[in-house]
């Protein structure tokens, strides 16, 4: 009887599957255990606070706890977007990031190409080591360095550089018009070495025969850069740029808060979403407004990551996308 034997076979299969599955699980148990500590930590660090995003829709009352607090709908958001702050911090965060991405990429690639052209191995090594130095120090120490340069009474710029040209000293920490430039310079100074090394590593990997072929075709150095070097760098440029666009709604809190020393007159050009959330939460203790700004940052930031990745998939093909 074929039907009976088929049923029996099925039964046998089911019976043996359970212990097999069990054994398989036991075999991999150590690997799951290795995964566990980190997973628990990430759960606490990242997943638990995600649920806390609901705070943006509540009026927090500590006696009732977060879950027990009253819902207030969108009132935290209407309050936030009524102020001119909302526009200001969005504009600052986006514009600074766009400038950082464009200028940072151009500078890092230029220097990487230059570094690659240098013949003396020892010199190359020294340059590589030195340009990474600013990347290694904390933004607090960077704030001290900037202060040593820009302090109005004792700063190096006012005392030595401007004095040498016979110019009047500038009160840097109260003049907003200089800060967009200062912040861009400080950021690029701190990060160009790191980005440069990333591009340089890709450059070193380019097959030399491409250059030889280009030389035979009569290409000069500039043409080699345009037709061989840049196309080879493209995947790295795309990867780093999508990662940067994914973070375009975020800013380096230290750069915008510590470097200008939280100076009141500069706030228009130095406040970003991150400094705004910090000020609202810790200095003003305004949970409603800061959580609304934080929610806005998380959600729009997430949408931007997905959009950036999606557009790369559409334009550059599956292999260039991050996920």
């Amino acid at each position: 009887m074929p039907t009976k034997s088929a049923a029996l076979e099925q039964e046998m299969k089911l019976r043996s599957a359970a212990p097999k599955k069990h054994r398989r699980f036991l075999r991999y148990l150590p690997l799951y255990l290795m995964f566990l500590p980190g997973a628990l930590y990430l759960f606490m660090k990242n997943y638990l606070p995600m649920s806390g995003l609901i705070i943006a829709f509540k009026k927090v009352n500590w006696r009732k706890g977060i879950l027990g607090s009253d819902w207030v709908g969108l009132s935290n958001f209407t309050y936030l977007f009524k102020t001119k702050d909302a526009f200001n911090i969005t504009r600052n965060t986006l514009l600074y990031n766009v400038v950082f991405i464009v200028l940072g990429t151009v500078i890092a690639i230029t220097i990487a190409i230059l570094l690659n052209e240098i013949r003396r191995k020892a010199l190359k090594q020294i340059y590589q080591t030195v340009i990474l130095l600013p990347y290694l120090i904390s933004i607090v120490v960077v704030s001290y360095l900037v202060f040593a340069l820009l302090s109005s009474e004792t700063g190096f710029v006012n005392h030595t550089i401007l004095a040498a040209f016979g110019k009047e000293p500038v009160s840097w920490y109260t003049e907003p018009k200089y800060w967009p430039y200062i912040l861009v310079i400080v950021h690029i100074w701190k990060t160009f070495g790191y980005d440069c090394i990333l591009y340089y590593a890709t450059l070193v990997g380019i097959d030399h025969s491409y250059y030889e072929a280009a030389v035979i075709d009569g290409a000069n150095r500039w043409q080699q850069v345009v037709h061989v070097t840049l196309p080879s760098l493209l995947p790295t440029i795309i990867t780093l740029t999508i990662m940067a666009i994914g973070k375009i709604f975020y800013s380096d809190f230290g750069l915008f808060y510590q470097v200008p020393m939280d100076s009141g007159p500069l706030l228009d050009v130095t406040s970003t979403i991150d400094t705004y959330v910090y000020r609202g939460l810790i200095r003003l203790n305004d949970i409603g407004m800061s959580s609304a700004a934080g929610f806005y940052q998380s959600i729009v930031g997430f949408i931007l990551v997905l959009l950036a990745n999606w557009s790369v998939k559409k334009i550059g093909g599956e292999e260039n996308a991050l996920f």
Binding site: G38, A39, Y47, L48, F295, F302, F323
Partner: peptide
């Protein structure tokens, strides 16, 4: 060969894409 490896990798990767921000973290 680890079963469930892709889901586990996604669990890690997702924390790079989305987060709750300073306010819930601070309160926690």
């Amino acid at each position: 060969d680890l079963p469930g490896r892709n889901a586990m990798a996604f669990y890690v990767f997702f924390t790079m894409l989305f987060n709750g921000g300073l306010v819930p973290t601070y309160i926690m």
